[in-house]
Structure formats: structure tokens, C-alpha cells
């Protein structure tokens, strides 16, 4: 397996959509390729960071204001 082959399957590996056989092949490549190991770990970390950090938060007062506006218009039949 080349690094290019590995990269083509990176998403499937991250999303746990590879067959057991394929997983073994990918693991073997990882065992001897430090570059792909870094790419895999840092890509996983990238996703995790975006998932766990709220970068556009909705402050409670704004949320309440928007919520009230939506509901009052719905009650009027929009």
C-alpha cells in the first residue's frame, strides 16, 4: 500500500467504514509510515476540535429574543 492509497481510504478509516481486512492493511502501512500516522492523527484531532468547540455561540439574551420573535409570528399564523 502506498501513501496515496492510504490517503484515499483516510475518511473511511476515520468514519469506521472499512472492512476488517482493509483495516489490517491500513494498520500495517501506519506501522511503517510516520507521515501517514501524523496525517491520520491530526485529521482526527481537527474534526474533534471543531466538534467540541462552539465557535459561533448564541448568547442567551439573543436566543430568547429570536425565539420570542419566531413564536409570536407563528402564533399570528405567520
Amino acid at each position: 500500500m502506498t501513501c496515496k492509497d492510504f490517503l484515499a481510504l483516510l475518511d473511511d478509516l476515520i468514519d469506521d467504514e472499512v472492512s476488517p481486512n482493509m483495516r489490517t492493511e491500513l494498520q500495517t502501512h501506519l506501522g511503517r509510515c510516520g507521515h501517514c500516522e501524523v496525517v491520520l492523527n491530526t485529521t482526527r484531532k481537527t474534526i474533534e476540535i471543531y466538534r467540541s468547540h462552539e465557535i459561533y455561540d448564541l448568547p442567551t439574551d439573543l436566543r430568547e429574543r429570536l425565539h420570542a420573535a419566531i413564536m409570536s409570528r407563528c402564533k399570528k399564523g405567520c
Binding site: 462552539e54 459561533y56 448564541l58 436566543r63 429570536l66 425565539h67 419566531i70 413564536m71 407563528c74 402564533k75
Partner: peptide, 18 residues
Amino acid sequence: DVSAYDTLVRKYERQLFR
């Protein structure tokens, strides 16, 4: 039942805003 819509709005308003 508008109150049921209130529940749905609460549930998803953060995601939609984001």
C-alpha cells in the same frame, strides 16, 4: 398546537444559527 412548535424551535435553534 403551537406549543409543540415552540419545543421544536428550542430544540434546533442553536444548530440552525450555527
